[in-house]
Nucleic acid binder design. Structure first.
Lengths: 126, 126
DNA sequence: GCCATTACTTACTTTTTTGTATGTACCGTA
DNA sequence: TACGGTACATACAAAAAAGTAAGTAATGGC
């Protein structure tokens, strides 16, 4: 999220794995804690920073900023700054981002079905 | 992956977010470093522990074990142990796991397209 | 009795991600 | 001229994920 150690085994493996597998690559793009919730909320149009912050209760400004920046630099969302005071910044899905919508709908349905079939037992999703 | 602190903010947020959003829930299921590569490789049928280890070069036995265990406890793969010595253990997708195949194909295609459109600039996927 | 093989454990370290707390710029309004 | 609102930035701490290194159990073959 912030600084990564360029030649750690960890980072090397990430590179290897995301270059080897388009799927892993895709999921990495979208794999941060709050990224999908952000994207879901942008499905119906633009939102301001503050609106996102209020909708996604629990997220901190720092986390929201970090995730928005990554989504932006990955070309999934677009950021528009209006030269006003106080500042106004709007976020929206790019064309590439919108292509994900049908996919995440299906994934979402899978999740809903799966959640019923396999109610959480293991503690990592208790 | 191992022990989690039951009432850390981090863990509380994970619970909140995965219970609030089926999509985040799904991606979490599948979001570990090596999980998708494992799943991809199981697409065509059963594989033994050692086979996976050899196919996925770079993965350590520990990581392979941990991910397999999570996938199993999440009902995405099935583990079969044969009472032999030396031991033989086979892994395969469950029905629920197989339902993911069409979804990850699409995601994979998105990844491939996206990778061409947005060749990595940011260092987090250099 | 010793070794090889397989599929793991266990204890530990490093790296990355997430969260906390506080500060900043901008300018119109009071 | 102090204040409020917005969208951040920065320094730091905590937690989680990933990686390293060294075991272990079982048993058939030598």
């Amino acid at each position: 999220m912030a600084k990564i150690k360029e030649n750690s085994t960890n980072n090397m493996n990430r590179k290897y794995i995301t270059s080897d597998c388009d799927l892993t690559y895709s999921v990495c793009m979208v794999g941060g804690r709050w990224k999908l919730i952000i994207l879901c909320n942008l499905e119906d149009g633009k939102l301001r920073f503050g609106e996102l912050k209020n909708i996604i209760c629990n997220i901190t400004e720092r986390m929201l900023t970090l995730h928005l920046r990554e989504l932006e630099s990955d070309g999934i969302i677009k950021r528009t700054v209006y030269a006003e005071v106080p500042p106004r910044v709007e976020y929206e899905l790019t064309a590439v981002g919108k292509e994900l919508i049908p996919i995440w709908k299906q994934l979402s349905e899978w999740g809903a079905r799966h959640r019923k079939l396999n109610p959480p037992v293991s503690d990592h999703f208790a």
